[in-house]
Each structure stands twice: as C-alpha cells, then as structure tokens.
Write a protein that binds this DNA or RNA. Sequence first.
DNA 1: CCGTCGTTTCAGAAATCGATGAAACAGACC
DNA 2: GGTCTGTTTCATCGATTTCTGAAACGACGG
Lengths: 183, 183
Amino acid sequence: MSTPSEPTPPSPDVMAAQDRFIALWGDMGAHWGVPRTMAEIHALLFIAGEAMNADQIMARLHISRGNASMTLRTLVEWGMVTRSHQRSDRKDYFHAEQDVWKLLATVLRARKRRELDPLLTSLRGCLLDDARRGDDAAEHDRRIGDLITLIETLDRLSEHLLGSNAGGDKLADLAHDLSEDGR
Amino acid sequence: MSTPSEPTPPSPDVMAAQDRFIALWGDMGAHWGVPRTMAEIHALLFIAGEAMNADQIMARLHISRGNASMTLRTLVEWGMVTRSHQRSDRKDYFHAEQDVWKLLATVLRARKRRELDPLLTSLRGCLLDDARRGDDAAEHDRRIGDLITLIETLDRLSEHLLGSNAGGDKLADLAHDLSEDGR
DNA sequence: CCGTCGTTTCAGAAATCGATGAAACAGACC
DNA sequence: GGTCTGTTTCATCGATTTCTGAAACGACGG
C-alpha cells in the first residue's frame, strides 16, 4: 500500500475511548503545569501502545508539525518517550513507556531534578544568617529553614523510592504493601 | 496612631529577604499550576508569620483588591490560610499555617480531593469493558486499568501518610526515618 | 553534487488565563 | 433609614504561554 505505516487500524469504539482518554490526560496536564499538547501526545503514545511517527501524531491530534517536533523532543529529553528508527523507513518513530510504575518514576525524577533541586538552592539564598542577627531575622531564618528541611525530606523520599536502584521497583512493593495493609 | 495595624515593622534586610522568598514561591507555584498571585499571597502570610488584612496584603504585593479577595477566599477554601476577626477592627485578618508538615498535608489533601478523585472517575469512563470484547479493546482496557491502579495506589499512599489520624504526624515520622536511614 | 524526504527552528498569531477596578453588596453603627 | 467601612463579584483588559507555518537545515541516495 501507499501507507505501510498503519499496522493496527483500531475499531471505532476503541478510537472513541482513546479520544476520551487523550482529552482527559490533556486536561490533567494543564492543571499540573504541563502544556496540554504535551500531555496529549504522551497520552496518545501511551494508549496506542506502539511506535508512531510525527505525521501520524499530527494527523490524529490535529496539531502542527512544529508543535509536534518541539514537544516530542521535550518528551524524549524528559525520558517519557523514546525515539527509534524503523529499518527501511527514514521517519523517526516514537514510543511511550508502557509500565506505569516506570512512568511515575520517570516523571518524579524529572520534576525533582528540574524543580526541587533548583528550589533548594534558591531557598538557601533567602536566608540572611551571617552577620545581621536581629529579632525577627531569627524568626525569618527559622521559617525558611523549616521549608528547606521539608524539601530535603521530599528529596530524600523520592531518592528512597526510586533513586538508588533502577526502575522504581520499590514503587511496586509500596503498592503491594498498601493494598494489603491500608484497606 | 492612624494605623493600629502594623505591630512589626520589619527591618529592610528582612523585607528584602521576604521579597526574594515571595518571588521564588510565586515562580514555583506557576510551575505547578497554581496562579502566581495565590502562591505569593501564601508566601507572604507564611513568611510574615502573623495575621494580615487585605489592605496590607494588597499594598505589599501591589495587587488589586479584587484579586486579593478572590485569592484569599480560595486559599481559605483550600485550608492553607485561616480567616479571623480581630476585636475592635472590622477588617478580616488572614493567617497562614506555620507548621510546614501540616502545610504539606493540607496541600496534598486538597489536590487529592480536587484532582485525583475526579480523575479516577473519568478514567473509569475511558474503559469499554462491558459488551465489546475485541482484540485491541482488551489491550486498551488493560492500559487504562493500570493507570487506575496507579492512581488508586497514590490515593492510598496519601491517605496512609496523612489521612486517618489528624495532622500529618506520620510525615514527621517519615522525615525522621529517612534522615537516619537514607544518608 | 543535486534532489528528495524528513526534521528543526523561530518569529509572529492565537488562545488562554490571570488581574483589574468599578459597581453591587453586606452589615454595623448612629 | 442613612451612611460609612469593608467585601465580593464580574465584565473587561492585558500579559503570558502555547501553537502555527514557512523557511532553513541535514542527510541520504542516485
């Protein structure tokens, strides 16, 4: 055929459910500071489960080539999507991690690195300890210090859950523990 | 005096450090889907440590009355700020929780209630189990099901950490455990 | 080399979201 | 009841952020 790129034409029902999911995931992303299109592309690749190229993604989501290209690049940078070449096709293919626990681990890792770590540095810059030892200066530094401790704990918590060993296995353990313990 | 409302005029150094913190917190909020002004008002109340009225907040942050009013209402709704009246003053005064562990617990609870729970419902709506039992329908439902399990686990995790007993004490325990264990 | 196919970039357009401020509202006090 | 103080609402404005599309780029094959 002229399009050797569609191994799985999904049934209308499945397509509809996919669309619902994509819209939902896009909305959720928007609430959490992720560009809607980025969440949508990820949702599509996740729910499709197989590698897609830029043209397929553009067509399915009605987005521009530029948008798709930039967003895919970012998704790859953040480790949520992998890029691969399929032999006998010059196009790039993109594929989303299918293991939701690994996905969570990746997201947490990325956000920690991109946001928690810089935040800690900046917070330290809000201290005024050295010379100036005034009445409310102490109060101020205590409050900032509390926040720093909090962030450091979250930092350690994320390292603990998914840091040292690869792949967020501890998350799966956690899930198991909670399911027999909490309820 | 004409302004009986300023019990603590902070020193210039402290003011400067407060401003840095407020800007930082505002930026951070923006990255996490919280309106900048909301994060800033909360930062101000937290770092000031004492109750302030709308006029003081407006003046300090250079924001409009309407903005301050709406945002404060939301902060109160979300439980991050409490409203109180001071006798012999008709103004409303606002005060932010000072215990950072309680703060975290409040934030998590609010986001869970406002976002995780609705998300779960919508996700279930993306299933297509009942009649249609097709080849890729099964795949689809498995993927959505995985996500549902993931969200449910996070749900349980948050309940476990701060749900049943009041006040997020377990978070403090967690901090303690991690600090002697992880490093 | 040159043509083709695909990807990346970026300036500008569009859309979204938050902020403003004036008018309506509430209620305390005289 | 009228006025004074303070609060809330909401239509509109403004700014940030995202998306588009066309042009530049790169690389592969002939």
